[in-house]
Every structure is written in C-alpha cells, then in structure tokens.
Design a binder for these strands. Sequence first.
RNA 1: GGCCCGUUGGUGAAGCGGUCUAACACAUUGCCCUCUCAAGGCAACAUUCAUGGGUUCAAAUCCCAUACGGGCUACCA
Length: 543
Amino acid sequence: MTNKEYADILLPNVEHDWTYYEEKYPKRDLKEGQMVTRFAPSPTGFVHMGSLYASFLDLQVAKQTNGICMLRIEDTDGKRTVENGVQGIIDDFKNLNINFTEGMGFGGNYGPYLQSDRKDIYQAYAKKLIEEDKAYPCFATEEYLNEIREYQAQKKIRIGIYKKYAKDRDLSRDEVLEKIKNGEKYVIRLKSPGDFDNKVVLHDLIKGDIEMPENDIDEVIIKSDGLPTYHFAHAIDDHLMHTTHVIRGDEWVSSYPKHEQFFKVLGFEMPKYAHIAPISKREGNIVRKLSKRKDEDAAISYYVKKGIPTEVIRLYLATICNYDFEEWYTANPTKSIDDFTFEFNKCPIGVTVFDIDKLMSISKIYFSRLKNTTLFDMLDKYTKEYDVDFNNIINKDKEYTLNILNIERDIERPRKDIGALEEVKSSIWYMYPELFDKNTEEYAEVKACDKQIVIDYLNNVYDANDDQETWFNKVKEFAVNNNYCADKKVYKEDPDKYNGMVSDFCALLRIIICKKNQSPNIYYLIKYLGKDELLKRVELFYK
RNA sequence: GGCCCGUUGGUGAAGCGGUCUAACACAUUGCCCUCUCAAGGCAACAUUCAUGGGUUCAAAUCCCAUACGGGCUACCA
C-alpha cells in the first residue's frame, strides 16, 4: 500500500489534492507595505464591543495601507454556533456601515470564507501530512484522554499528548486498518517534531518578543467529525488567503508555538502577529473580559438603541486603540479616523477597562460639532424607529425644529449637552406646545412676582426681532423699573426693598417657559416660542 | 502542577536610566465668567509608580523574588 492509498483510507472522499488549492489561490498582487488582515469571529452571536474593537484595528491598518481586510467565520465547532449567528454577524456589520474588502457576505476570490465550507481544503493538507508521515490517526477515547490528564496532574508533570503519551504514534498500519474496520473513531494528530527544551520566539508587533518553549504536543488537526481544529484551520486559511498580519486576542499568545510549528511543517510562510488585549469590565475587585451574556452594555445594539452613532463608538475604540489618537483628534477636529495612522506599537499591552463616561464625553463632543441639519437628519431617522410621536412633532415644522436644534450650536464653543439621540427629547420638549401641554412635571421653585408684571413685559417690551444684546438691555431696564435690582451689592444691603435681582426675573421667565431652572439662553427660547405661546404659559403658571 | 502576559491616581493612560514632587484626557471638587445650565477660563486631586531586595553616582524605567489579576495547558475558539 502506498502512502497515498493509506491517506485515502484515513480521509476518504476528498475531492482535490493540496496542490490544486495552491494553484487556485495564487499569491496576491500586492505592493510593498500593503497589509492583508482578517477578522475571524466564531458565530456565537451579535457583534459586541470586544469584537468591534478587534475588527476595528483589522480594518484600519488594512485601509491605511490600501490593503485588504477579510471577514472569515470560524465555525468549526458546532457547539458554539448560534442560530442565525453567521448572518447575524454580517447584518450587524452592514447595519453599522462597516464594510470588509472581502469575506463572508462581502465576496472575494479567496473564499469560501466560512470554515465549515472548507472541509475538503483542510483534509487535503492533512492528507499531505499523512503521506509524508508527519501526521497519524489517534484512536484515544475521551475516557482514555481524561485518564492520562488526571495521571499527569497527579504526578505534577506537564499535561498533554506528547512523547510517550502519544501512544498511537507507534501503531502499525495493519493495526490502524484493523481499528478502522472495527468502526473505531479517530482523529488526525500532528506528529510533533518539537522539543520542549527548545525555545521559540514570537515577535509580537504589540507585545514585543515573547519566548516560549517549543510545542511538543501532538495537536489534533482533524477532529473525528472531519473538521479541523482552530490551530490547523488558522495555518491553512491564513496561508491560502495570504494574510500578512494576524491580529487577534491575546488569549492566542500561548498557542503561538503550535501555530509556528504548523506553518513550518506545511512549508508555509509565516504571517506577522499582533495580539491585542481584551476590553474588560471591572466588577468589584476583579477585572474580566467583556462578556456577551453577562454585559448588556457590551452589545453594540445597546448603544444603537440609545442613539449613539457608530462613529462615536469608533472614536472611542480609536482612542483606546492608539494612545496618541485622542490628542491628534483634538488637534485635528475636522479630520476623520481614517486620516490617522494606527500603529501596533502604540496599542495598549495590558487589559483596558471599558469606560462609559469617556464614551459619553466623546459622544457629547461629537454631537456638539454637528450642523443642525445633520443632527436633524439623525434625529429624524432615530425617532422614526424609536419614538414615532416625537418624530411627527419635529417634522410638523421642520424649520422651527432646525432653529431649536441650532440654539448655541453654530458658534465657536457649542453646547455639549447631548450625548445620545434619546436625550434630545428631554432637553427640548418644552419648545413644543403639544408636549408642554401634556407635561405633568411640577414647576421648580421660584420667587414669583405679580402676574401683571410678566404680562406687561410680554405685551409692551418683548419683541421677537430684537438681537440678544437689545433683548437683555430691555429686560434689565424693564425689571429695574419694576423694582428689581441690577446691582448685587446694593441688593444685599436691603433685599426686602426689592422684588429680587434682575436675575430673579429671568429665572421666573425660565420657569414659566420650561418649568426647570436650567435651560439654554432664554433669549432664544422666548424668540422662537412667540408671544402667544408665552402668554399662554404665563396663565398656566399662575394657575 | 507547567508555560506565558500584566500591575503607574476614581478611570483610560504617557513614560523606555537623570529634565518625574509623573504628560494628556475623562470623572470629581472649588473659584471666575454669567439671566440659569452647558460651554469656556483658572485651580485642586499619585511626594509616588503592587511589595521586598539588588545593580547604579542616579530607577516608575534594568535584574531577581513575592503578592495579586489574566490567559493557555480540549476532538472550544
């Protein structure tokens, strides 16, 4: 029996030889420096902050070198796959307007990009290794494996299938054939050429050089269901897809020796590696990785629902991704994330604790820089989905809404009081009579004067066409004539002599308008609301 | 048990042997401005870089130990 025939028995029904794939996926035509990266999630559910962070770096470095970033779905473990998980990931990215150059859902010539569709490819290479006597079938059962592990743990020796513990290595062909005939299940393991006493060095682009012992464990390459393990698939895929930079979570650092071994045994050129630290969450004294199941605020949809734009999340990720991004962005407020060059050696090495305050601060700055028209469009789209009533209200008189959104906006130092679209309503509701009428909030406490004084002001002094300075001078003059004091010191000498300070009169106007003692410049509120509505609110207030 | 990685204030984090009583940003607090709030301006907030040793004229920075946190050690990724 030839080696090839033997391999055919171990892995039957494999359509092509490995050389077929080498030809099918030729080297990419790349210029010096162009990077090929990939984001490779397993389909365990929606996109969350952690996955977005990893994909963000993948996308950015590819983009800035005019390279390629692929979306590859790693679904070699059926247990991890969630229903609609694959489509869910694709949809999430598309909804966030994040586009990969190629990959699952995005096309490309190096697919399929779903690992379960690549079974034949992995097996073709596994057969190559079998033919070269670099891999062998292992019939060990789960119970047997557990036994070995327990024995090793008890004896305090290294755990794993290596050297003498890899007993199926020595099975003769006849023995193997016999077991197969008996229907025994098996996996294919690599015959590790490594020696634990040797060292390998990972030249990590983020963490620097890391020295580790060489891998001597006979890693499984093909599981009994015919699918590859992560490690084997990684080597094959990133070789065939010609990935230049593998950017992944740092939980992979310790498996690097296995990966290096695979690339060597298969005769592949190694990609470069960058291991990123996960985004975490503090829970009391412990810091743990953000979890899809436990942390609802890890889901991107959580922020979408609040009306925090993707761009804001990307800005946040950019600031934690490279430490000098924030400074750069502050100095270049008109530029976009894509104008910044991200570098691996500026990525954080240790875990980063997710900071919602920081995110919100970035969001406020982002919203404060928007034009009122842009804000309106975003608000329109958002409320259409989450608050139809409010959507009708803001659209009833779009010009009016635009004016309101523009209050203290189009100036050198705009207000920063909106952090999410969901907050807009609660900050401007009182500018809409229909919302004001329905509002049941109590008026905040205020030093009120005689109702007639306010009415006098509105009827005889107020003019919606006044500019701000004129407006205030008139208010001041009117207030003083009605026994309000304009001078703090004078007022303090004998407060009982006055109705209050001029500021008290303004406060009264404010409360009448919006019930609260905080609002943007009253000048604008009065100007846009108009006399009739104001008189109506005076009546309401004094009732 | 073995093998890796990390540890700077409430938070992110700069720092790569002297210029560190430690940049910057967020948060917090106070003052100023002011019709309120927001914004803005000013100021406060680590005399100390997990702990203990060592190297050095000099250490947050280099070395070693310890503690704590994290990862891997699966026919999971």
